[in-house]
């Protein structure tokens, strides 16, 4: 089956920022986390996928359909949740639903009611009066109520408390019980991804740093720690984002096996979290050879 989302060679520039050669692919049935520091190009990538920005080069396919040629068909298949509320403050959630629903051919009122119940959304209140969390839940409810196959989320957990974030993740995992679906999830709160993400794509300074399965990432990368005397030039050269203190050093390796051989019994290599991988890669970006 074709991937649910395929991004090839995307390019876009504004002023001195250029997003280039963004390529990745998300197979059906999986969750992909899109990570990177602020201003790295995550939102731009998502806006290009959603046709909110015009790409200068490259192509995007959703369920095998080119997003430029099948604009409306593609949007039928996408459910979206953005970092900010874009619904009308002046309307109640129910009124807003009445505006949005007619545009979806496969609007599913039952699903809508199910999520409204489950999230205990006060749908008769004006959107202005909803809490930040409820606004996100409402957006999520709309995204899940029209048989969308691809759910695209741009920083959906920004500003949400941990309980609500975990509720969101639970819904996503449930959604993937249907293996035709897929989720693209941009976030800088990477702890959300440590658990549920299947693939991680990292963007930095407008370029893809890596796009791999999270398990592979956590196995090939390692957080190396050791005493100062163990930091031989060979090891030093191979560590990314090296940090030296008075008690020892810490750095990231993208080749755990090689590092184990170099280090012998003397040092420790930990399994890094997604966040650690991101932090070290960003810190060491530009002066390290990063290949995954």
């Amino acid at each position: 089956m074709e991937p649910i989302l395929e991004v090839k060679g995307l390019r876009k520039s504004f002023g001195d920022f250029t997003l280039k050669d963004i390529s990745f692919s998300l197979p059906r049935g999986f969750i992909m986390g899109l990570i990177g520091p602020n201003g790295s190009g995550k939102s731009t990538t998502i806006k290009l996928i959603m046709n909110l920005l015009k790409k200068e080069a490259g192509e995007v396919r959703v369920c095998g359909l080119d997003t430029d040629r099948h604009v409306l068909a593609v949007k039928q298949k996408i459910g979206f949740v953005y970092d900010e509320n874009h619904f009308y403050d002046e309307l109640t959630a129910l009124e807003m639903k009445r505006i949005v629903a007619p545009f979806y051919r496969e609007w599913d009122e039952e699903a809508f009611n199910y999520y409204v119940d489950r999230f205990q959304l006060p749908v008769r209140k004006k959107i202005k009066a909803l809490s930040k969390g409820n606004k996100m839940k409402f957006a999520l409810t709309v995204a899940l109520s029209h048989q969308a196959e691809l759910i695209i989320m741009d920083e959906p957990t920004a500003g949400l408390d941990p309980v609500m974030r975990s509720e969101l993740l639970e819904v996503l995992v449930e959604l993937l019980q249907d293996e035709r679906k897929g989720v693209l999830f941009s976030t800088h709160i990477t702890t959300d991804l440590d658990k549920v993400a299947d693939y991680i794509t990292m963007i930095n300074e407008g370029k893809v740093v890596f796009s791999v399965a999270k398990d592979t990432l956590q196995e090939t990368c390692g957080l190396v720690k050791g005493g100062k005397s163990q930091l031989t030039p060979e090891i030093r050269d191979r560590l990314i984002g090296l940090r030296e203190g008075s008690f020892g050093f810490e750095g990231l390796t993208t080749d755990r096996k090689q590092m184990e051989a170099l280090l012998g019994e003397r040092g420790v290599i930990e399994r890094p979290t997604v966040e650690e991988i991101m932090v070290y890669l960003v810190r060491g970006y530009g002066n390290a050879d990063i290949s995954l």
Binding site: V71, L72, H86, F87, Y88
Partner: peptide, 18 residues
């Protein structure tokens, strides 16, 4: 003005509407 204030053009252009 309300479209602008709510930044809802982003919403409308993400829906299946030409």
């Amino acid at each position: 003005a309300l479209d602008d204030k709510n930044r809802s053009e982003i919403l409308l252009n993400s829906l299946p509407i030409s």
